[in-house]
Design a protein around this nucleic acid. Structure first.
Lengths: 140, 140
DNA sequence: TCCTAAATAAGAATTATTATCTTTAAGGAA
DNA sequence: TTCCTTAAAGATAATAATTCTTATTTAGGA
């Protein structure tokens, strides 16, 4: 388990520090998409002197090195969407551009899929796609 | 156009104020998912004395009254996700619970769909579903 | 026109995160 | 093993978006 972790750090030329080990352990222990705050709280139990800035920096480096990913939340730096039809979003990886993507055929496909494949213990209200990629610049 | 707007406000018992009208106009004019900052900047041109707090409060009330919705971004109050398989997320409307949802059959369905239905001027790198709904409490 | 609750303005407070700058320590070299 | 270099950590200030607080204003019904 932590062998893999050490290996990744080595490969990237990153030092194996007690802080990084503690944060890695916290993440493998904490389930359900912890916030930075959750992670800090967990680590402080065994590692009370860790600096919050360090935790943020380490988390960023883990994301860069694909040990973690980030989940979108509905809070802060919100962007507003005035179209209220059921549509999806195209997110550009290079810019902060977000475009709407409407596709009734796709909506129908998904709706039918979930009619026959219910999710255990969960009642679906809405399904939205986050489609990440790159816009083709040549045609604006 | 603004008749609909006035009607909605009336129905909800909300007063029609110049600020609300200006914000509504800004939103109908600005495309591409403006931030609160974008909206404030636009309004200030014709309405230089509007208070930022007012803009935030009005936007919130518009979201409550379904004139707007919010779009998730990747910034701030991040939550971290240690599972790096291609999975989706279940968001609970009642709590802040987020669960992973893995479904290879669904992934395949979507992948095949986009193979035959390319999005114009956009190269897809990743497709993730945000499935919003309610967890069935009885079974935890 | 008057009255009252709702809305606005102004600015302080909060919160998550990032930046800065100094000190520490990981880990390769001697 | 010790030394050395540089990345990493710690402490704390700064930032940025948003929320809160309180006094003032105003929409719209009586």
């Amino acid at each position: 388990m932590s062998k893999f972790f050490r290996k990744v750090l080595k490969e990237k030329g990153l030092k194996v520090t007690p802080q990084r080990v503690a944060i890695f352990e916290a993440i493998t222990h904490l389930k359900n998409h912890p916030t930075a705050e959750n992670i800090i709280a967990y680590i402080k139990k065994n590692h009370p002197n860790i600096s919050i800035g360090t935790v943020y920096k380490v988390l960023d480096s883990f994301v860069e090195n694909k040990l973690l990913s980030k989940v979108k939340t509905e809070k802060d730096i919100m962007r507003y969407d005035s179209v209220l039809t059921n549509h999806h979003h195209l997110y550009c990886t290079e810019t902060d551009r977000i475009e709407d993507y409407e596709d009734d055929q796709l909506n129908e496909l998904i709706e039918n899929y979930f009619k026959t494949h219910q999710i255990k213990n969960f009642n679906i209200q809405e399904v939205k796609l986050q489609i990440t990629g790159k816009f083709n610049k040549s045609l604006k």
